[in-house]
């Protein structure tokens, strides 16, 4: 039981981070049908941003805010410089471009910061543990609590924005049918910019949480996490906000539970099993768990 509880907490923690990243993939895809592979690398940009600001003597909250601003700036520049000129060029062109942007970002940071692994040291407070039960054998660190609270809060906030604000409604309208939305006077560029701002900001927070939890970082850290978060967005139904959040949590939990419960020797293939689940989900629900029906692709 303790074993299960401990594994579940770790899984939820990893899943929360995947969820934050998957949302960014999903909302951008919803509007532009663009799979933005450079999205994962924004995690890395955010981590370096926060790291530099902390080294400059900023306190942690300000460093995180600064890092979010830096990451949003990167996201917007990428959108303006790489994706907007290609908006009418088709899905393959922007897909390849996003891979190019990803490689460019990694190599840029490799050049500037060297491939060295760096420390992302948070104050000792985050490593402190709370006992949840099981006679002291189920514990949770403050870092995990921070991850859960921040993720939950952000998901609630973004979901409110999407449901209630004018920009949010415009965003959903564009996701539904961007041509019709344009005809109704929705400014598509403003909506796209807004989607990139939200996506980049969430990726920035995810990056800081991830590096805070796992201590060290380097220029290539974002790619694999990005791929997994992309898979999470697909499981949930790419384009769907709730689907991305649910898919992220599901993927994180499955990944850890597979690693914990698969027999000795097979545990190492947990990622393969996770992707097996992806295939099974897609076989039965081709649009993902929360995906919209077919026919939306223009």
């Amino acid at each position: 039981m303790d074993f299960f509880a401990g594994s579940l907490i770790s899984g939820l923690q990893l899943g929360s981070i995947y969820a934050l990243i998957a949302i960014g993939y999903s909302i951008v895809y919803g509007i532009l049908r663009l799979i933005n592979f450079a999205h994962g690398d924004l995690l890395m940009v955010a981590t370096y941003g926060a790291w530099i600001l902390i080294a400059r003597g900023l306190s942690l909250p300000f460093a995180v805010i600064g890092s979010v601003l830096i990451t949003v700036a990167f996201g917007l520049v990428i959108e303006r410089a790489a994706y907007r000129p290609l908006r009418d060029a088709g899905e393959e062109a922007t897909l390849i471009t996003s891979l190019a942007v990803s490689i460019f970002l990694q190599n840029l940071f490799l050049m500037v910061f060297t491939p060295k692994n760096r420390a992302f040291a948070l104050p000792g407070f985050f490593s402190e543990k709370l006992v949840l039960g099981g006679a002291g054998s189920i514990t949770i660190t403050n870092m995990s609590i921070v991850i859960f609270v921040v993720t939950g809060g952000l998901i609630a906030a973004v979901s409110l924005i999407i449901k209630k604000t004018r920009l949010g409604i415009a965003m959903r309208a564009c996701a539904e049918n961007s041509t019709a939305a344009k005809l109704m006077g929705v400014n598509l560029n403003a909506v796209v910019v807004f989607a990139f701002v939200v996506g980049s900001a969430l990726a920035a927070v995810a990056g800081v949480l991830y590096s805070g939890q796992y201590v060290s970082f380097n220029p290539s850290m974002g790619f694999m996490i990005g791929i997994k978060a992309f898979a999470a967005a697909v499981i949930g139904g790419i384009g769907s906000f709730a689907g991305a959040a649910a898919g992220g949590v599901l993927l994180g939990v499955l990944e850890i539970l597979f690693a914990c419960y698969l027999p000795e020797g097979a545990g190492v293939y947990q990622t393969a099993f996770v992707f097996l689940v992806l295939i099974v989900v897609l076989l039965f629900k081709p649009n993902g768990l929360f995906g919209a029906a077919e026919g939306r692709r223009s």
Binding site: D2, F3, G6, S7, S10, G11, L14, S137, Y214, S216, M221, F223, M224, I225, I227, K228, E255, I256, A259, C260, E264, G265, G267, V268, Y269, Q270, T271
Partner: peptide, 22 residues
Amino acid sequence: GEATYDDNGYTDFSPAIQKVKA
């Protein structure tokens, strides 16, 4: 006991930790 992991972007060691604690 033994635990293995694959290092492809993998930095979460909680499965190994849970196994040791169990």
